[in-house]
Design a protein around this nucleic acid. Sequence first.
DNA 1: TACATATCTGAATATTTATTCAGATTGGAC
DNA 2: GTCCAATCTGAATAAATATTCAGATATGTA
Lengths: 320, 320
Amino acid sequence: MSRIYELRLITRVAQLYHVDGMKQAEISALLHISQATISRLLKRAEQEGIVRITITPPRGTFPDLEAGLRERFALTEAIVAECYEDREETILGAIGDAAGHYFETTVSDGEVIGISSWSASLLRMVDAIHPLKRARAERVVQILGGIGNPAVQSHATQLTTRLATLTSAEPMLLPAQGVAGSAAARLVMVGDGYVRATMNQFRRVTMALIGIGALQPSVMLANSGNTFDSEELHDLEARGAVGDVCLRFFDEKGEAVGGPLDERVIGMTIDELRAVPRVVGVAGGERKVRAIRAALLGRLVDVLITDKFTAEKLLAQPAP
Amino acid sequence: MSRIYELRLITRVAQLYHVDGMKQAEISALLHISQATISRLLKRAEQEGIVRITITPPRGTFPDLEAGLRERFALTEAIVAECYEDREETILGAIGDAAGHYFETTVSDGEVIGISSWSASLLRMVDAIHPLKRARAERVVQILGGIGNPAVQSHATQLTTRLATLTSAEPMLLPAQGVAGSAAARLVMVGDGYVRATMNQFRRVTMALIGIGALQPSVMLANSGNTFDSEELHDLEARGAVGDVCLRFFDEKGEAVGGPLDERVIGMTIDELRAVPRVVGVAGGERKVRAIRAALLGRLVDVLITDKFTAEKLLAQPAP
DNA sequence: TACATATCTGAATATTTATTCAGATTGGAC
DNA sequence: GTCCAATCTGAATAAATATTCAGATATGTA
């Protein structure tokens, strides 16, 4: 009989709580109703639809795209950055800044950070990070060999050392090529004490920062010399490769294609990467969409940081 | 530089909290941000207008009228009941039910309840109260003499005894007329042991339930014989009286008019009423609007229970 | 009617959230 | 550059809120 009175009471309590900002205990005293009941009435207020909470995303944020990415690809987190034109250079700036902010606000004390080399996105990210936030990482581990053409070499090494400086962490470089000339040459390099020491840290990495590469190497990577001849690329393509992380190639489904090249790469393997608690992929751009989608399908990353154009493209194709 | 990233983060946190129903500690773990910061971000979300809370009053509730009454007349609480037609009988039913529900849900253990007699509203209220809620009042005190014409007598006494039964409280009746024939007659009655015992409880009353009367007596009151002749009524009118509570008359501003009649009434005085922590007035109807407004202006009640027609009329006239 | 089951309450308490605090950092003012 | 006030952070903790519990009461069922 008293449903309408109850609804009135719920409405009144909701107003006092949400609009007037009163504490439940104050409302309890004012209305002569126990605090427990006030709490229950407030819960009812939401169930009855008397109180509704609306979230208005600010311009330049894309919760729907992010939710779409998280759901479609089972991501822990997706960050979609605003971006004014669909050009590679513009996108790099956008996702670099976004990744920098993500890193700053979510790195915890004592983390062991793994960072790939030869990634323009990561380079932009590190540029965007402010010097010294209060969080101090334990160490920054380079997870892909960084030696190459001296003209672009500095990029690879600086990525690790600058990030280490910014986080007051110990840098652990991987003084070796990304791709050795042969499996035998790789074994020689891996025999080096510094290289071994760094590689021994791989399993301690708590957060890995990686780019995602298309099969066609980026300009930077091509310039570095850590690349493959057209025969090798054709071989990879023939075996279904569509992209790579840390020069480990995977197919349309994100599954490793393996092959002889794997024996020449000095860096984290895909299995080692999967063992890292938080893998953050930073990538965007028309050229890379196919590779990124594959990496997501293969669950190679937990967190994706990208731009709105790439996000739309990743979601445009119906779920497999 | 990072305002947009912060807004994105705030939006994300707000979604996880308000939409997905996650705890701050869970969000903290998911996003690698401390719980303290999550709490601060949620506060910012409201300040920034990203999260908005809307209250939709159900049909048949009148938060605006209630707020208007509370503000205009400095009431602790106002309850406006839905009512389908502006007729006295219909209104009585509406406010009686509403008052019954109010009483049931807000009476606490151990209260001393004062209740006036000769009020049709209170009669309806008591009829609406369900037998025995778990709250048990200590006692129910009749605060206005209830003896009169035997034909309607039962109403007055039953009001007290029924309410006492419903609340498992001890009834304390006031076995005297509401209006004695003379000041001397009143003194005789007040000398009675029972009468004194009950009147001694007046200052212990924690909640008083009262009707509000227009100058022109109601049918029930007129029938009871506890009333005045036209000469007395004219005298009251001449002195500005517009209504009464417990047969204590007040003017347009709610101030007591006093006079010889006061010496003949057996019941709580206005000063005694003002000393009661919670005075609940139950009244409505065209005929009484002027009296109710005056009682409110005089701060004679803390809580008003009325109907939507009366509420609108009380608010229609601009604030004094 | 009697019984079992589902609901309801307030007090006590567990859980969750907001704030205080101390330590750093930032951004001016000079 | 150097200093100072303002701001920011996470850990600890105070405060607020939700839930458990026990006791009663409604409600449905035989």
